[in-house]
Design a binder for these strands. Structure first.
Length: 205
DNA sequence: GACCGGATTGGC
DNA sequence: CCAATCCGGTCC
């Protein structure tokens, strides 16, 4: 490893201070890590979606909506925006852009790396079950990583929840497509703001 | 204060 | 295909 090689380092603040679409793309292939009280669990990010704040009808911050839930999106990028969906699953977003620009990236799927047993226990998954089923969805990966409302607002530049830089893959091809399950979002339905690795078995659905 | 519906998942 | 399950958003 050379002095200029940042591989293995935690992604710095400036990584997140730009357009959520760029962040969503650049997060693919990086390692999401959660060091909880029960232990460490991590995985390679293989699927993301960008939410473009006030102008994006699919975003919780559309039209400048401000609440205790969306507040963290208005802070500096690189923080965890975690929310409960359907009353039972948590979703993890990483905020982007600077103060006052409420963009974020939904982490939709990861490929398990560290803490396989811990993740299986949290998901109540049998060892023989298909590994890909462990973390191939936003609700599933939060359960596996032990991410819930208590992580809301966590600084990704800290040592509890962060993203570790990995060497770029020369073979991974990125596919863009419309985002999943936003039928209510009218004109925003058709934006290709979902990103994933082509053919990767850990991508959702 | 009431009501509606969801950035999901797993079971039938 | 559809229920689970609770909270934010909206409107009264």
């Amino acid at each position: 490893m050379t002095e200029t090689d940042k591989t293995g380092k935690t992604l710095p603040r400036e990584f997140y201070l730009r357009d959520a679409r760029e962040v969503a793309r650049a997060l693919l292939g990086q390692e999401l890590v959660h060091e909880g009280s029960a232990g460490v669990a991590s995985g390679i990010i293989v699927e993301t979606e960008a939410y473009l704040g006030v102008v994006d009808r699919a975003s919780h911050a559309f039209g400048g909506r401000m609440s205790s839930r969306t507040a963290i999106m208005y802070e500096e990028g690189g923080h965890a925006y975690v929310y409960l969906i359907y009353g039972m699953y948590w979703c993890l977003n990483i905020t982007a852009q600077g103060v006052g620009t409420p963009e974020c990236v939904l982490i939709r799927a990861i490929q398990p790396v560290t803490g396989l047993d811990l993740m299986r226990r949290r998901r109540h998954a049998e060892a023989g079950k298909r590994l890909a089923n462990l973390t191939n969805g936003p609700g599933k990966l939060c359960l596996a990583l032990g991410i819930d409302g208590s992580v809301y607002g966590e600084d990704l530049c800290g040592n509890v929840l962060f993203v570790r830089e990995r060497p770029p893959s020369d073979s991974a091809e990125i596919v863009v497509s419309p985002r999943v399950n936003i039928d209510y979002a009218e004109e925003a339905i058709h934006h290709d703001w979902r990103y994933y690795f082509k053919g990767n078995p850990f991508v959702s659905r």
